[in-house]
Amino acid sequence: MRTSPANIASAILTYGFVGLMAFLSVFPFIWMALGATNSSIDIIKGRLAPGEALATNIANFFTLVNVPLVFWNSAKVTIFATVLTLAVSSLAGYGFEIFRSRHRERLYRAMLLTLMIPFAALMIPLFIMVGKMGLINTHIAVVLPTIGSAFIVFYFRQSTKAFPSELRDAAKVDGLKEWQIFLYIYVPVMRSTYAAAFIIVFMTAWNNYLWPLIVLQSNETKTITLVISSLASAYYPDYGVVMVGTILATLPTLAVFFFMQRQFVQGMLGSVK
């Protein structure tokens, strides 16, 4: 029964299909890695073997791009966005869940409605606002509108439902103030929630494109995503250089994924708990 022809056929079909999908998913990464070692002409011609141009490509990338500055820009934007979003959102998630009141519930529901606002409808007013504040071409302008995130607040509130109220009661008996309870008890207890939220915010900030494209206009302020995009849209793009850039831009998120795989998936699933 177990090894009937039908079973074998279905096994071949299953492994064949899943295997093909896995291969197609991974292939662009392999192509990217091989591409970095080939010359631009070979890449466009679809050469699929390691070449000898890696050193040249890296050297060209470093000549064309001020690499330390670009990465510093990306890191700065990402770190500020991540720290501030996590701080502001976890405070709010805690506040909404622990100190419930009728007015705040109404505001919470109104806040969730903002999840449906498409960014395209915000970019013109935001651009004018940032211009009036004199922040065009600054990293503050990139970070500021992204800190208040209804989704991350929602995520923290959902997770706070699992925060044991006995801990809070005990801390109050010990005479801790509200902010101390938050800082010394809530934050350490909820670290896995912070880890998952960190991944969502980190990915969004590091990969953010449209808003930085609008506000960052000089080469001194540009982030890595903007640089790759402009390298690739040159009239004759040097694909070897582009590949080196894409690898460097993908490495941080890839590292986060491999070192925090469980929280990564948890973060992605966040909203359906």
Partner: peptide, 28 residues
């Protein structure tokens, strides 16, 4: 007292969302 704390905790997030999402969406 509870209410004051509740507002203090949620104010930064609500303020930022109001300023950078609600206000611009009505403006546009």
């Amino acid at each position: 007292y509870y209410d004051v704390n509740g507002w203090l905790f949620v104010a930064p997030a609500l303020g930022l969302i109001a300023l950078f999402m609600v206000y611009p969406i009505f403006w546009s």
